[in-house]
Amino acid sequence: MMPFLTIAFPVFNPIALQIGPIAIRWYALAYICGIVLGWIYARALVKNEKLWGGPAPISLVQLDDFILWVTIGIIVGGRTGYVLFYNPAFFMQHPAEIFELWKGGMSFHGGFLGCVAAVMLFARSNGISILSLGDITTAVGPIGLFLGRLANFINSELWGRPADESVPWAMVFPNGGPLPRHPSQLYEAGLEGILLFTILAVMIRIGALKRPGLILGSFIAIYAFARITGEFFREPDPQLGFLWGGLTMGMLLSVPMIVAGAILIVMAWRRKTPEHT
C-alpha cells in the first residue's frame, strides 16, 4: 500500500518559456540562469579586494571573456561524459543522437572535466593563476548545480529509489511506476547546491581565496561526499543499474574527487601567501 501522506507529483509543462516558435525548456533555462547568476556572483568576488588580500588575479574583462570558454567546456564535457560514462552502447549504435542535446543527458563529472580544461586553457593563454581561476569558477558552481537539480525534478527525471511509510514526502513520479519514491533531485539540490554554496561562501568570507586552490579543493571534496550521499536515495540509471557491491556509477566517479580535493586542500593550506601571476 502507498503511504498515507504520499505527495502527488505536481505536473509541470516541460516548456518554461514560449516565444513564438522558440521554446525554452526548463533544463536549458537552468543552464542559462546558472551561468548568468554565476557570472554576476563571480564579478562581485573579483571586485572585492579584501577577499584576496589585494587585487584579484583576474580582471573583470578577462572574467567576461572566460564565461564563453567555461560554457563551452561545461556543455561539451557534460555531454561527452554522459555518452562515455552512462550510455556508450546506445550512442555507438545511434551516433547522430550524441548531438541531440535537447533530449537530455548530461553528466556532472564530464562537465566538471570540461570546466577544468577550460580553466587551464584560458588561464595559460592569459597568464592567470590556474588555481585562483579554479577557485572563482567552483565558488559559483553550486548555483548551477542547484538549478540543474530543480530542473531534473520539474522534468520528472533522475528520481529516487522506492520509499517506505516512514517517508511522508515520498512522491509517485509520472514515469517512475506506481511506487512512491524519494524526491532525490531535491535532496541533491539541497546538498550540492544550498549546502555546498553556503560552506564555500563562509570559507571565502574568512579568507579562503587568499590560499589559491583551497576553494577548488573544498568544492571537489565536498561535492563528492554530497553526491555519494545523494546516490543512496537515487535510482540508478536503468542501463547501468547497481555496479560492484551495490555501488552506482555516480559513487564510483566521485571517489577520485575526494582524493583530488584532499590533495588540493593540503597543498593550499601549506601556502602562506597568495600566488598571483
Rank of each mutant, 00 (worst) to 15 (best):
G148A: 08
W159M: 12
N152F: 02
A96S: 14
F219S: 14
L209Q: 08
I22Y: 13
R181H: 12
G141N: 08
W169L: 07
G111D: 03
W69Y: 13
E49F: 03
E100W: 15
L240K: 05
E275N: 09
F108V: 10
P180T: 10
Q185P: 00
P55G: 06
N175C: 04
L186G: 04
H182N: 05
R271P: 02
N48Y: 03
L131E: 14
S166C: 02
V266H: 05
L186D: 02
V259Q: 01
A260I: 15
A170Q: 03
I67E: 03
I72N: 00
F242Y: 15
M92G: 00
G213S: 08
F108M: 00
D164T: 07
I136R: 09
F99Q: 08
A8R: 07
A16G: 05
Q62N: 11
L264F: 13
L243R: 05
V255F: 12
A170K: 04
D64I: 01
M1T: 11
M120I: 15
N155W: 04
F233Y: 14
W52C: 01
L121T: 13
M1K: 14
S254D: 08
M2W: 05
G193C: 05
V11F: 04
G207R: 02
R271H: 13
V172D: 07
Q62P: 11
G230C: 11
G250P: 09
L200A: 01
G250K: 12
G160Y: 02
L158T: 07
I154S: 10
P88G: 00
H182K: 05
G54F: 00
P95N: 11
G217R: 06
I15T: 15
E97G: 08
L243Y: 05
Q62H: 12
I136D: 01
P3H: 04
E188K: 01
G213T: 09
L145K: 01
L60D: 13
S129F: 05
L45V: 06
E97C: 09
A226H: 04
G148N: 10
P162M: 12
P183I: 01
I136P: 05
D164P: 02
G190E: 11
P236H: 11
W102D: 07
L195T: 09
E165A: 13
R43M: 12
A8T: 04
M106Y: 00
I35F: 14
L196H: 03
N87E: 12
G193P: 06
M267S: 09
Y27I: 00
G54Q: 07
F219W: 12
F90W: 15
T80Y: 02
V167F: 09
Y86R: 12
D64A: 05
F122D: 00
R79Y: 08
P256V: 10
M2G: 00
K210L: 09
I220T: 14
R149E: 09
V46M: 11
W169T: 02
E188G: 01
Q239N: 13
I130Q: 13
G127Y: 03
F9M: 07
A221C: 09
P3L: 02
A151T: 12
V172A: 14
G127A: 03
A208Y: 08
F232V: 04
R211P: 06
V116T: 02
A139M: 15
